[in-house]
Computed example of a mutant assay.
Amino acid sequence: MILNLPFAALRAFEAVARHGSFSEAADELGVGQSAVSQHVKSLEEWLGHDLITRGARRSLPTRDGARLALSIADGLGQISEVCEDIRDKRRDDTTIVISCHPGFAFIWLFPRLLNFDRAHPEFAISITTDTGLRGVARAEADIAIRYGTGDFPGYAVKPLMRETLSPVCAPSLLKGPKPLRRIVDLAYHTQIRDEFGPTTTDLPTWEYWAREAGQTLPTPARIRSFGQSNMVVQATLQGDGIAMGRSPLVMDALRDGQLVQPFPHSVPSPLNYWLVYPEDQRRAKKIALFLDWIAAEAQVQYRQHLDAKSDIQND
């Protein structure tokens, strides 16, 4: 007999166990964090056992939870593969499906896709915004662009962009009644924080930057936090405060003068951008073509950034 299983709750729980985070699970499933939390709670009540040990930084499965999460992942994976075979919707060889985080897609990838269309009109690009690797593993995407340490076992991995960190703000914050000129001036301004990040030992936070740059941060006037990188950049462009600039996401705005770096201190980020794809796709023509194109675009952006910095220094 098959139990009347709460499938939505099981799927939400598996995502939390895999990510170690309710917020990242919510991003993957496209629902609110409260909905994911309620699903997990209802599943625990239905089973009569705790499944997740909730923590400030990470939420880890209990022993029973780990067993259940593995079973769900295996079961859903098999169901997905069978459905894929039944639907027989294999992508056309002229379509390239890219999986990446919404913030990166909005800020960096979308503005550059016209260049790809012009150079390769025979191919079509489709974007899916997903933060996990399941989409690539289940043939839902050809290539994933991921942000992290580059540790993706079982996949071919190529570095796309290295990241540096430095505070950035709108030019208007350099003037006014409380001009931003020294680190201590941060006490009079809003600190904008990016809440998104993989579960790692170090994240590109304000505290990380201060430690690596040998600086002491004052207590800011207020803090505003966002769960998506594009919202962080947009709030900074509007002059709402100072953000920790992640170089690939702010280089264009710095070059155009929409953002400025009020301080000279720049440090390497603990995380970078990577191209991730199945090992057996390494020699596929469309994969190789896209990898070459996006690597060239990243190099163009970096050179433009260096030229802009040189122009500023020469003024």
Rank of each mutant, 00 (worst) to 15 (best):
S59I: 05
S166E: 10
K89F: 10
R146I: 00
V31I: 15
G154Q: 04
E45S: 11
N314P: 09
M1S: 13
L133A: 12
D27C: 13
R255N: 12
S266W: 11
P111L: 05
S229I: 04
H39F: 06
D307A: 14
A144M: 07
D142Q: 00
S126E: 11
S21G: 02
G135A: 12
I127G: 04
S23N: 09
S59L: 01
N230M: 06
T200N: 09
Y147N: 15
V276R: 04
G176P: 03
A8K: 09
A9V: 04
E45W: 05
E28H: 07
Y188S: 15
L180S: 06
K285Y: 01
R182G: 03
A213N: 09
W274Y: 15
N314E: 15
A26P: 00
L237N: 12
D311N: 15
V97A: 03
I312H: 15
A298P: 02
V97C: 07
I183Y: 04
I312Y: 15
Q238K: 10
S59M: 06
P204G: 13
W108E: 03
D142S: 01
W209K: 14
L10Y: 08
I223V: 14
P262L: 09
Q228V: 10
V232R: 10
E163W: 02
I96P: 01
A139L: 12
W209T: 10
F110V: 15
R282W: 02
I2G: 08
T149I: 14
Q281T: 11
F104D: 03
I79S: 12
L60T: 14
T53E: 12
G176K: 04
Y273P: 02
A9P: 01
R134E: 06
F13N: 10
T219N: 07
L275Y: 05
A187F: 05
A243W: 06
V40G: 10
W206K: 09
D307I: 11
V82K: 12
T201D: 13
P153D: 07
A8E: 13
N115A: 12
Q234P: 04
Q228H: 15
H265W: 15
R303V: 01
A105W: 07
P121H: 07
L306R: 12
L254K: 09
L275K: 05
T164Y: 08
P204M: 08
S269P: 03
R58P: 04
A235H: 06
F290T: 02
S269Y: 14
W274F: 10
G77N: 05
L259V: 08
R134L: 09
T216G: 02
I96A: 01
A144N: 08
D92M: 08
S172P: 01
V16G: 03
L237W: 06
Q304A: 07
E122G: 06
D194G: 11
H305Q: 10
A56W: 03
A144P: 08
S310P: 11
G214H: 13
K286H: 01
R58L: 11
K178H: 13
